[in-house]
């Protein structure tokens, strides 16, 4: 032992005793789990008077108890700081799991990106419904004036306008025997809204009737456009016996040999 006097509550070097201020006292050892006695308990010894040298141990005063030596009979052991921190961290993590899951779900389900609420402006070239019609062309000018009056064609309404999806179609046939060889078809919504015109000529290539028909076709489609009328008329005559296409003033003219015809429609 060192030379200095032990302090109250100090343990002996072997840890089995503690200093109560006047003498070394035994540190209570943890009670072992009671084991069943292998034999019947011995008879109780005869009562003995307590030895004056070894009085029955009494628990020391609380302020004299060494750390960790509190008797179990005093209640549950108080948690240390490490235990408290572990419990707090565990609780934090336990709370974070459902919280994080709920937060992620909420963010995924409830937060929506924002975008434009209106579509972008349409370019000038964007197709417009008004482009469906041949500009300046009327049913009256084609059917009544050109075909019926000038060329004695007969016209009748057809069931369906297949080429352009227009509301109405008028089929006009040449007079007499020409009815089997030449015909003109007009698809339109109303008199001033013509979508499509086609003229069929079933004569062999080189026939003057077809040349005259295609030339007149070009003229009538551009009748209200004097600056383009001659160009269209010439193109029809020149390309009568070919497969060709052109666009004049926003109108597409197309000639085909099989079947032999010319057709006009808005360019798009």
């Amino acid at each position: 032992m060192s030379g200095h006097a032990p302090r109250i509550g100090e343990r002996s070097p072997d840890g089995l005793s503690w200093w109560d201020g006047t003498a070394w006292r035994s540190v209570p050892q943890p009670a072992a789990a009671p084991a069943p006695p292998p034999f019947p308990p011995p008879l109780a010894p005869p009562p003995m008077s307590p030895s004056p040298q070894f009085p029955p141990p009494s628990p020391p005063a609380p302020h004299l108890m060494p750390p960790g030596a509190a008797p179990r009979a005093k209640g549950r052991r108080r948690p240390g700081k490490v235990v408290a921190v572990l419990i707090a961290v565990s609780a934090l993590l336990l709370g974070a799991c459902p919280g994080g899951t709920a937060g992620v779900l909420a963010g995924y389900l409830w937060v929506e990106p924002t975008g434009p609420t209106t579509p972008p402006a349409m370019a000038a070239d964007f197709p417009h419904g008004d482009q469906r019609y041949l500009p300046g062309v009327t049913v009256r000018a084609l059917a009544d004036d050109w075909l019926k009056k000038e060329n004695s064609y007969t016209c009748a309404a057809a069931a369906k306008a297949e080429a352009s999806g227009a509301k109405q179609r008028l089929d006009c046939e040449g007079p007499g025997e020409l009815s089997l060889e030449v015909s003109v078809h007009i698809e339109y919504d109303d008199d001033t809204h013509v979508r499509y015109v086609a003229a069929f000529c079933r004569f062999d290539p080189g026939a003057n009737y077809c040349r005259s028909l295609f030339s007149g076709f070009g003229y009538k489609v551009f009748e209200d456009k004097p600056e383009l009328r001659q160009q269209a008329q010439d193109w029809g005559a020149k390309n009568v016996d070919s497969d060709n296409v052109t666009t004049i003033g926003g109108v597409t003219l197309l000639v085909s040999l099989k079947p032999h015809h010319i057709r006009a429609m808005p360019a798009s």
Binding site: A84, I87, A88, V89, S90, A91, L92, L93, L94, G95, A96, C97, P98, G99, G100, T101, A102, G103, V104, A106, G107, Y108, W110, V111, E112, P113, T114
Partner: peptide, 27 residues
């Protein structure tokens, strides 16, 4: 202290998850 820590964890993780995932969704 444990109960408070659990509540803090719940709320903190919830808010953090909402902000992170919500930010991603928003973008």
């Amino acid at each position: 202290v444990g109960a408070v820590a659990a509540v803090v964890g719940l709320a903190g993780a919830g808010i953090a998850g909402y902000l992170v995932i919500g930010g991603q969704e928003k973008a």
